[in-house]
């Protein structure tokens, strides 16, 4: 086997692997939302975050617009504070928007549903670092059952 042919085959091998990497990065992992440069940060406080985790998606009408970056506990009020990274592509949510913790399917993962609020002259758009005030916590099955039993009596 001459060395030209070997070089060619090695080149094909490496090119093939790079192609496979791009498939993994863009088709499988959807590498759109991971760069830190093209996102802005929002905060939200919840009563209870249930099964929400870092990297859970933030969706508007089912479309992923960002991800949960971190979840911390506010030391003063003992409520969870969630940091969101939202794509710059979607930077026109009004400050009246609300966040709900939702579950995909009966047993599926939890994610954040963002519901854009109304817009009028007195309403500003959410900026980097703003806090979303209107939030609804996760449904916790035990509490639901408890409520159901309590209401019956």
């Amino acid at each position: 086997m001459n060395s030209r042919k070997i070089e060619l085959l090695v080149g094909v091998f490496v090119a093939f692997a790079i192609g496979a990497f791009f498939v993994l990065a863009f088709k499988v992992a959807n590498a759109g939302f991971t760069g830190s440069g093209d996102t802005y940060t929002l905060y939200a406080d919840f009563e209870n975050i249930g099964g929400l985790r870092p990297r859970s998606p933030v969706k508007v009408g089912g479309v992923v617009v960002g991800r949960v970056a971190a979840i911390e506990l506010d030391k003063q009020y003992y409520t969870p504070r969630v940091r969101l990274e939202i794509s710059r592509q979607y930077d026109n949510f009004p400050e009246t928007s609300s966040l709900v913790i939702l579950t995909s399917g009966l047993l599926g993962e939890q994610y954040l549903g963002l519901q854009p609020g109304f817009i009028d002259d007195s309403v500003h758009l959410l900026q980097d670092g703003d806090l979303i005030e209107d939030t609804r916590s996760a449904m916790v099955l035990e509490e639901l059952i408890g409520q159901f039993l309590f209401n019956r009596n």
């Binding site: 993994l24 990065a25 088709k27 499988v28 992992a29 959807n30 991971t34 990297r55 998606p57 992923v64």
Partner: peptide, 15 residues
């Protein structure tokens, strides 16, 4: 198949 994959696979964490 593809969209649920994209929603759940993370470039850093997984790839």
């Amino acid at each position: 198949y593809w969209s649920s994959m994209q929603a759940n696979v993370d470039l850093h964490q997984d790839v």
